[in-house]
Design a protein around this nucleic acid. Structure first.
Lengths: 222, 222
DNA sequence: ATTACTATATTTCGAGTAT
DNA sequence: TATACTCGAAATATAGTAA
């Protein structure tokens, strides 16, 4: 099915052919679509041929109704856009508490990062990260999260080393404010790293293997 | 702006370029659009040229983000569809009580019509119509109503005369169930004709010139 | 007025291919 | 692997026009 056909269906629907009927000329339809009368006429013929419109002539105009088949096409388009514009802005990922490599602690000790995390969390961050290992369905959410733009934490150079940009999302674990950090130039490791103002293992008395759900605000921007 | 461009924008948005970014190849985009790699590549170039996308190269893939300008185009499309699928199903028209030509009463005396109106109202209709004259903005609503498909009341022949099809909508005046009838082959006269099981002038003590609001259920179908 | 046909003009596509 | 160029082919739009 061509795009011009869907556009014609849409214009006819907007003119009232979806709920009832519309009496329209091919010139008028062409004008609303930004094409010629001839092209519009063709569209109507094509759509009738496809069984998406019914047509009768009334007072030299075409009385057009969109059939259920035509309506289904429009509804599919609509659903695509709904997915786009009515997507959630919260994401909950559940993971298993795991012991990290100590890398997170090393990063949190870097003053350039600390200053920026402090602005995000509202207070000095604890010098370490909580690592949550995610698997299966939850890993898909992590992939999604990695594609989103959150709060950008700028990289820097220090002691001859390069520290890269970090993507950051505000989040909460059982209403305790925290943040998920995602190094921008790293590959997927199935680990969610969480920072907070306190040591989360202590706050919630967590041990390796405990499952924790984290609510992430994916709408958070710089 | 071409349709192919809007389709490309939509596909990129669905791939995540609206909320964040998507790393995609021109082949992949082409596949999702049902066009070749070359065409998809062209679309991306065109959209960048139009300022609707930003692009950088990451790991031999194109990291694409939709700009606010691109998002505006998608949002406009979405709004068109929303108008289509989230339209009201009630319409209130206010009109002035007027004395009709007596035609309504004549129609209501025809047994073929009476039987069908009785099925619609649930009980025998009163042998007459209440005429409401509508003007200005309200007249526009009447035009809209005339374009909708309601409950079809079939025409017939009797005493050598042809009685045409009538379009009918369930309605209510101050919670009193009634119906609006619209002869299918008549021209707009700025009059809403209302039938009910009782004489509405008596029920509400109406005189010519009184204003009455009628709530019409435009979703009512045969 | 219309619709819609035919013929021509224009656009768009994608295979081949350089980078 | 990619992207993106050229160019011949295919598809599409429109002008002119008949009914």
């Amino acid at each position: 099915m061509k795009h011009g056909q869907i556009e014609a269906l849409k214009q006819l629907a907007l003119a009232g052919a979806a709920k009832g009927h519309t009496d329209i000329t091919s010139s008028e339809l062409g004008k609303s679509m930004g094409v010629s009368q001839q092209t519009a006429s063709n569209r109507i013929l094509e759509l009738v041929e496809l069984g998406m419109l019914t047509r009768e002539t009334v007072y030299r105009r075409q009385r057009i109704r969109i059939t259920d088949k035509g309506l289904a096409v429009l509804r599919k388009e609509y659903m695509d856009f709904r997915r786009l514009f009515e997507a959630y802005d919260r994401l909950t990922i559940t993971g298993e508490v795991a012991t990290g490599s100590g890398e997170g602690r090393y990063y949190l000790q870097q003053n350039e990062y600390r200053k920026q995390f402090e602005r995000i969390l509202g207070s000095t961050p604890f010098e370490g990260t909580l690592n949550l290992r995610v698997k299966g369905r939850e890993a898909g959410k992590l992939t999604l999260l990695e594609s989103l733009d959150g709060i950008l934490v700028n990289g820097f150079k220090s002691e001859g080393r390069t520290f890269g940009d970090v993507n950051c999302f505000l989040a909460a674990i059982r209403d305790k404010k925290c943040a998920v950090i995602i190094p921008l130039r790293s590959h997927h490791r199935g680990i969610v790293e969480v920072i907070s103002t306190q040591r989360l293992r202590d706050v919630f008395n967590l041990d390796d293997g405990d499952f924790v759900a984290i609510d992430i605000d994916v709408s958070s921007k710089a």
